[in-house]
Computed example of a mutant assay.
Amino acid sequence: MDERASLRSHLEKSVSQTPDCAAACEVIETIAAATIELAGRIADGPLAGITGEAGGMNSDGDQQKDIDVLADDIMRRALRDAPVAAVLSEEAALPEILDRDAPLCVAIDPLDGSANLENNISVGTIFSIRPRGNDILSTFFEPGTAQCASGFVVYGPQTTLVLAHDGRVDIFILDRRVRQFVLIKQGVRIAPDTPEFAINASNRRHWHGPVRAYIDECLAGTHGGGAADFNMRWIGSLVAEALRILVRGGVFLYPADARPGYREGRLRLLYEAHPMALVMEWAGGAATTGRRRILELGAKTPHQRVPLIMGSVRGVRDVAAIHEGIEPMFDNSDAPLFARRGLFR
């Protein structure tokens, strides 16, 4: 192994400079250690008894696989030994109280995108850390600006940890030889203007007018009077999409749409949108619902869903600009209504 800094030494340096962050660093290290265990189980798949078969439904109505249950168990078990007052998991209806006197609360998606494992596509763990309030449960309903750290792990060709902590975003890769994360990029900054977007285009017929208008103008490119010809990317894995934005730039859209169950968006605010928004903003990007900054939102329910548009400042700004000019009641209008007020001409 070369002389790259380990996650532990990186966090120890943070604690030496800012002693108040010691508890957060301990939680980060605990989560990272748990993801190393989970990465091994994911890599082994059927060899480790992971069938990928569906079991029941989780508390929010999503189909639950055996690996989801295993990931939740690994994370909960690890966090019980960390300075965590309560943990909110995608796999549980309500937060679980761990230590009422501990200083932090954690919201976590133990395994995001488990349906992708059947096709050997990257999946991940997403987490959000925030200081405990006087009332433990109400801590989870504060705006995303209350977070002191967040991050995600991508289980792919490499196991990659993206960490938003101490006001910046750093990237680590798991060195499997010594079973520890090592620093590969520090102070990551998202390219401000990359002509690339990611969206599930098969749902176009369900999109609201502002989203259709934005994508149509991207697709029209220079032929339609735009300043650039856009490329489209769609992996269908939130963590992989977010990592690509950190590396390449661009904008990711998972908007609300007209389908039942999607009218308020589909991603969960507390353990998907909030932590991703913190990563994006601390890396110089942006995250919005189209109408509101994600980090300004407070949850009303533990598993509240929201639209998420994130990435390069220019792309996010352009999507928000279309929404700002349209009253919410007209969101369902078709794209021609917006064609006269294009972004790129």
Rank of each mutant, 00 (worst) to 15 (best):
M75P: 06
R76S: 13
V123N: 01
L47C: 12
A71W: 01
Q63W: 14
V69S: 07
A107I: 04
I121H: 02
P46D: 11
I129K: 00
K65P: 09
P103Y: 07
I121R: 04
D73W: 15
A86M: 05
L70K: 07
I126P: 06
S128Q: 03
V84G: 02
R77D: 15
A48C: 10
D60G: 15
G55E: 13
A71F: 00
S89T: 05
A86R: 01
G124F: 02
S128K: 01
D73L: 14
R80H: 14
G56C: 08
P103C: 10
G61F: 01
L88E: 05
D66T: 03
D44P: 06
P110S: 03
G124I: 02
G124D: 01
F127I: 05
A78V: 09
A115R: 14
D99M: 07
R76E: 15
N120G: 06
A48V: 11
A92F: 12
L94G: 07
G55T: 14
D62A: 15
F127C: 00
A92W: 11
R76V: 14
A48R: 06
I50Q: 06
L117E: 04
K65W: 08
L98Q: 03
E96H: 08
E91T: 01
G49A: 11
P46K: 10
T125W: 01
I126D: 04
A48N: 09
A43G: 10
P83D: 00
L79M: 13
G61H: 01
L94E: 15
S122C: 10
L47N: 14
P110V: 03
G45T: 12
V69Q: 06
C105Q: 06
V123F: 00
I50F: 06
A71C: 00
G52H: 03
I74M: 11
E96K: 08
P103F: 09
L47Q: 14
V106Q: 00
I67K: 00
D60F: 09
L88Y: 03
A54S: 15
R80W: 13
A82G: 08
G55I: 13
I50R: 04
D73K: 15
S89V: 02
N58D: 12
D81C: 10
D72E: 13
D68A: 13
R80Q: 13
I67G: 04
D68L: 08
I108H: 05
A102C: 09
S128M: 04
G45Q: 06
G45C: 07
G61P: 00
N58T: 10
D73F: 15
N120F: 07
S114N: 08
A78K: 12
E90N: 09
T51M: 12
A107P: 05
I126T: 05
G61L: 02
A43V: 10
D60I: 12
D60V: 12
I121Q: 05
I121M: 05
L79D: 12
